[in-house]
Design a protein around this nucleic acid. Structure first.
Lengths: 264, 264
DNA sequence: CAGTGGTCTAGACCACACT
DNA sequence: GTGTGGTCTAGACCACTGC
């Protein structure tokens, strides 16, 4: 795996860490190195979302370290939500499909009642087209101004009442072949579609939230009066390696719902 | 510690777990039991915020378990932010003071520039008085309607521009003796004051966020026009043991700032 | 230097899921 | 039963801090 001795009598721990970097001593624990190796296999698609990864003992043998060391590596991957452990079964690559929660990244909850009572979201796609990235969109997605991007606009409703209007920007390259039909015919979370059809797995995201007033168009689509206060949620979602892959601008109605956040 | 044998030759792991509960098998790992014991000492104030807790070896000896078991217990307390590990020094009880971030639970950031450029918040207390809890406030704080509560209203500003108007509800009991003078003369985070003066440590919180329109009073205090969209942030903060200890209703201006949230 | 947390190993046994 | 993750121990050594 790295600087570790391979003969079985060799000192167990020891002169580990590498990082040949110039002025950086940058000691790196063995388990971190293992974590990086597993991460590479995840990125490379050696194991796909939903798949079981090799058992701890297998990985320990592969990398020539003890089970405890791969365990600690996997522990971190699990707390990062990249992988899910299931006792007695194995460790699986995390996925946005089969996630019993309908949308893992959606924090909008009904003020009263549970998610189940609320039922499934009804989706209506308003627009889906390819165009050239503006300077701002390009900057956020790590592209160059004018690069091809895909714009999707849609409305989500619950029980007939519109709740969310969103504008989704995707880089044209990784999402080549994504069309209105693909989206319209799909059920299930959009991020699950991204995984299965484009091999793009969203791993984490950052949201910037503001309060804004509905303009005429938003008011119409969300069935509120112009000027009505709305939650503006701008989300930048990342794949592996901190690569931004989606910019999403949402307007949420919060008359009967709220955005929930836990602090600690 | 619990069901663990104390003689040193006894089987190392084994018939652990207790949970005499009726129909609940509820196996509890040793390290969880240790975690609970440490938690009790934290609640009881055996070690105060900022204090160093005993070393892993000392705790291992005290509870008659191995260092690894104590380590795992402390690991969880550290990820819960109840305790902070500092290599070479020790493990310390977390505190809201000495937190280089000014307000640990405040998620409002400037759209441009850093927190440092923004400078310290200017605080102005508008009101501070004792009254009887309404049904709603009582419910959230786990009190009975009519119980004594303390209400503090204040405005936070940055560089002369008001940004936050908040209404803070505290249970009268634990905060007996808290007055306007105490608050006004204090510098530093309010939660640090709660720790040092009242032995109340806020551990986690849940926020419900909505977009609302400024009413006349809020508009005046925040220097915006009535109807201006504001972020409504309702926070319920908990001490140890999931006991709610503060209800805070904030109105945030988000013209030049935003609420930031990370998802994973 | 001694003391603290951090890493690593090796091996035993437990709890859980499938077959 | 077999295989998987989960717990626990014991002991060695490393890295960081402060005396």
């Amino acid at each position: 795996m790295a600087t570790q001795p391979s003969s079985s009598e060799a000192p167990p721990a020891g002169e580990s860490g590498f990082a040949v970097e110039a002025g950086a001593p940058a000691f790196s624990p063995l388990y971190q190195q293992i974590k990086v190796l597993i991460l590479r296999s995840l990125q490379a698609g050696e194991w796909k979302p939903g798949d079981m990864i090799p058992s701890e003992l297998e990985l320990a043998a592969r990398y020539r370290v003890s089970q405890g060391t791969v365990r600690k590596a996997i522990d971190e991957l699990a707390t990062d939500n990249l992988v899910v452990r299931r006792q007695g079964k194995g460790t699986f690559v995390a996925t946005h499909a089969e996630q019993h929660i309908q949308f893992r990244f959606l924090r909008l909850l009904p003020d009263q009642g549970s998610l189940e009572e609320q039922g499934l979201a009804e989706r209506r796609i308003i627009d889906c087209r390819r165009l050239r990235a503006s300077a701002e969109v390009a900057r956020q997605l790590g592209l160059r101004t004018g690069d091809g991007v895909l714009l999707v606009r849609r409305v989500l409703a619950f029980g007939g009442t519109p709740a969310i209007l969103e504008e989704i920007w995707l880089p044209g390259g990784p999402f080549k072949g994504l069309t209105l039909d693909t989206l319209a015919s799909d059920k299930g979370p959009m991020y699950a579609l991204f995984e299965s059809q484009f091999g793009v797995r969203m791993v984490r995201a950052v949201e910037k939230i503001k309060a804004v007033s509905a303009d005429d168009e938003a008011a119409g689509l969300l069935a509120v009066t112009p000027g009505h206060p709305l939650l503006s949620v701008e989300r930048l979602a990342y794949t592996y390696n901190d690569t931004p892959m989606e910019l999403r601008r949402g307007l949420y109605r919060t008359d009967t719902r709220h955005y929930r956040n836990e602090l600690s």
